[in-house]
Every structure is written in structure tokens, then in C-alpha cells.
Simulated assay, not measured.
Amino acid sequence: MRLFRDAFRFQAALTLRSPDTVHVLVTAPLYTVVFMAISRHAHRTDLAAYAVLAPVLMSLWSLALLTAGDLISRERSRGTLEAMVATPASFPVVVLARITAVTTISTVSFVESWLVAWWPFGVVVRVEHPLTLLWCLVLSALAMAGTASAMSALYVLLPTARTLQNSFTYPFYLLGGILVPVSYLPEWLRPLSRLVFLSWSSDLLRSALSPAPVVDELPRLAAIAVLGAAGCAVGGLMITRILRRVRSTGTLART
């Protein structure tokens, strides 16, 4: 736990000074403006919750992916990746803690999106089930950190992480039901979307903003936690095996 806490604090300090973080936190309100303008033009103010939640999940996911890739590539370019791997500290734990710090900070985007809906558009998105919203955001942030840590293992094998970052962004927006509910996807694609924790997160967050009672809250929270934990476990295993491979082939520090 001490290693996790120290790595978390280190990454939090870096993130608050990073231009990438500023970029994501600036684009979240802009996305909200676009989505709110579309819903108002269509005279669908009932979709305000969708316009607020979509930028939040997009910010969380994009920043988690960005950190997972840049964490490896930057340490490699600085020549410090070998030292990180050589230390007794568990490298998978360090990666998970640093990504968790970023996803935790990026939850600020929810406040940004809510304020944009309220101030320019005069739409107050009420949180009808605050505890459900809080638990869902916390578990979603942790699940994103766990899933992104699994992807960071692949970045060790690649000279650059940008290709995978770009490939994993928008497909997950669609499969995760961020832009539109999963029920609007083709029937053959819906079972696949349920393997993506974002689909559970987006549905539950919308339920937290709806006046209707939340149905199956605990099973849906459990699905987010299980899928996130699975990503974390796979990530730890992959990082350990890939590090063993690059050590034996001498390709850890390639650029």
C-alpha cells in the first residue's frame, strides 16, 4: 500500500502540471456545449443527462489511455525505464497507481460538464441518486485504471504508443454506450458491449440522474468492479510476462 500511495502522489503532482491534463479538462466542457446544442436544436431537453455524462466518460477514458501510453514512452525516452524495472518495487503496482491518480483527477470533468449545462443553457441536471452516482464514478475510475494498465503492457513492446491510443479511443466510446445507449447498437454487437465496463458505467450513471428508482444497482456496480478487476489482473500478468521477454531479448529500451 505504501508503494501504491507514493506512486499515486508522484503521478498526481505530475498530472496537475501536465498540458495533456489541461487539454482533456478543456475539451470536456466543449464536448458538453456541442452535445447540449444538439439536444436543444432537436428540442430534446430530456437528453441533457446524456450530454453531461458523455464528456465525463470520454475524458476519463482518453486520459487513462494517454497516461498508460505516455507513462511507458516518456520513461523510455528519458532513459529511466530500465531503472524503474530494475528496482525491487513492483512495476505493475506502480503503473496501476499512477493511472489511478490520473483517472481520479479527471473526475473533475463531471463538475465542468454540469456547470456548462447549467450556465450557458440554463439546464439543471439533477442528481436523483447521489450515492449511486458517487459509487459508480469511483468504481468506473478504478476500472479504467485497471483496464488501462492492461493496455500499458502492450506499449512496452511498441516503439510508440500513439497507434494503440488512437485505436482504442472511439471504438470504446461506441461499445461502452457513451455516445448512445447500448440498446441502440446492432443486436449482434450488444453482447460484446457488455464485456466493456463502460457500458455498465454509462447505463448506471444515467439511472443515477433519472427520477425513477435504480433497478439492479448492486449487480451493475458489481459488473463494473469485476470487469475492472479482471482488466487489472490481466494487466499485471501481461506486464510481468512482457517484461520478462524484453529483458531476455534486450529490447526494453528500444525507441
Rank of each mutant, 00 (worst) to 15 (best):
A141S: 15
V138E: 03
S193M: 04
L189F: 14
R74I: 02
A101E: 03
F35Q: 00
R206G: 13
L157P: 01
R194W: 11
H23T: 12
A51L: 05
F8N: 05
Y184N: 06
I99Q: 02
I105W: 15
I224S: 03
L189G: 02
R241E: 11
F121L: 09
L179M: 14
R247F: 05
G228K: 02
R245N: 04
I38V: 15
V234L: 15
L192N: 03
P120H: 11
D70R: 15
E128C: 14
I38L: 15
S207D: 15
L164D: 06
R2V: 12
P171R: 12
S90T: 07
W119L: 15
R220Q: 15
L139V: 00
M151S: 08
V215R: 12
M144D: 08
G177W: 11
S210K: 01
A54C: 06
P55F: 12
L66M: 09
S167W: 09
A97Y: 00
P88S: 06
A253S: 15
S149T: 13
T15D: 07
W200L: 05
C136A: 15
A148M: 05
M36C: 06
G231V: 01
F168N: 02
T251S: 14
L137P: 00
V93T: 08
V22H: 09
V234P: 09
H23M: 11
H129K: 05
T255N: 07
G235W: 14
L81K: 04
R241I: 01
V111D: 03
R126G: 00
L218W: 11
V196D: 15
G231C: 08
L30G: 04
T132S: 13
A253L: 14
D46E: 15
S113V: 08
E82K: 12
P130T: 08
L175W: 08
L57R: 05
M1T: 06
T249Q: 03
V102D: 06
Y50K: 05
R162N: 09
V111G: 14
V246P: 07
A117Y: 12
R98L: 03
E217V: 02
W119Q: 05
M84Q: 09
R2K: 13
P29F: 09
T251A: 11
A13V: 06
